[in-house]
Design a protein around this nucleic acid. Structure first.
Lengths: 215, 215
DNA sequence: GAGACGTTTGAAGAGTTTATTAAGTGCGAA
DNA sequence: TTCGCACTTAATAAACTCTTCAAACGTCTC
């Protein structure tokens, strides 16, 4: 079945890769960064729901088209709720599958959004939207600016001066004292609330850094 | 370039007409009533943005595919915000262009009267009609224009500037201050009256966004 | 352990942006 | 002309954001 789909896609000029269980699938998505994902619900190990859940939780936004058994309305609803984008019930025509996939990709690319992602923290520069996992976080303009800068330089320390310069630079405001500190606190409260998977770290005497927590 | 596209389309069995500047383009759209429109941003006289703006403001709902220079993310967003339906960055393959165009046309004709829907809010671009659930909502032209733009970009923030530019044209009048705010209030009063399932949301410091309420 | 230094914290007031209300303008239909 | 509608403007209210202060906390050095 997977083979069939793969061949069909390639005949239509799309590159396709196949994984035969959930975990390998997730790894493949991460390594190959495909434009879209066809996901059967019935899989050994992690099933299609689990895969969707994990990918979405980790901030993956690749469009997902689910394949479900016939008449499995409940499955469809569950899948879509977990973050899948479309579904097809078996048996399906290859033509329809491809059309749907192309529509998904088109839809995704027609909405260009400039995203930064660290761990499960996602920042959308276009829409000024921030997600931590699957929950949306509301930031004020300044908070957003700070986080955007930190995430742009993810993995590197951003000095306090650089932050202040970037966020308050153009305005002729006078000497900022601990205003930045206060904003860092606000930011952390909203973005890094849970003690686990903390992403914003202090580098004493220098500045701040955003990075995935190490084990 | 235009010649190339025209020839490509005709080889694929589509009729195509070419205009070499904005004004002629608008007239051609009006007289020829095409199924879709390929619009380069760089044009003498009125540019692609202006053309999109005018057509949309005059109620034209012909699908528009924009051609932008590469890396012009800002342009793409602006174009989509003004009412374009899809875009392609140069250079592009003719095959892709045609596929996208056909998809646009298919989508447009699939919805017999061109309508946008978010939750139970339905906006009919053709008939200038708006429904909230089973009750019809009457909007003034300006209110309709604002809502149409917001719904076309559902799920994405539309900046105040984009709204003002799209609705009131490119600043032939100075200083639109809180007029937009007033219209947002009117719109909300008519469209988002019930506190539940509110659809128009404020993004402070940026603009407004239409989206389904999340749990 | 005491002190210095830099960071974190909580709270409060000033400052901005957005929402709301109300009044005024201009146009077209009755 | 008079009315009603669509739009604009102005002024005020409400909501939210930013800044500041002051004190607590940690960490490092002596």
């Amino acid at each position: 079945m997977a083979e069939l789909v793969r061949r069909g896609l390639e005949e239509h000029g799309h590159a396709a890769r196949v994984a035969h269980d959930g975990l390998t699938g997730i790894e493949l998505v991460r390594s190959a960064a495909p434009d879209a994902l066809v996901l059967d619900i019935m899989l050994p190990g992690l099933d299609g729901f689990d895969v969707t859940k994990r990918l979405r939780r980790d901030g993956c936004i690749t469009p997902i088209l689910m394949l479900t058994g016939r008449d499995a309305v409940a499955d469809v609803v569950k899948g879509l709720n977990l973050g899948a984008d479309d579904y097809l019930t078996k048996p399906f025509s290859l033509k329809v599958l491809i059309a749907r996939l192309e529509a998904l990709v088109r839809r995704a690319s027609a909405a260009p959004s400039n995203r930064l992602q660290i761990a499960d923290l996602i920042l959308d520069l276009q829409d000024h939207e921030v997600w931590r996992g699957r929950t949306r976080v509301t930031l004020s303009p300044t908070e957003f600016g700070i986080l955007a800068l930190l995430m742009r330089r993810a993995g590197h320390v951003v000095t306090r001066d650089a932050l202040i310069e970037a966020v308050w630079g153009n305005s002729d405001r006078q000497i900022e004292n601990n205003t930045l500190d206060v904003f860092m606190k606000l930011l952390r409260g909203k973005v890094d609330a849970s003690p686990s998977r903390r992403v914003i770290q202090t580098v004493r005497g220098v500045g701040y850094i955003v990075r995935e927590q190490e084990g």
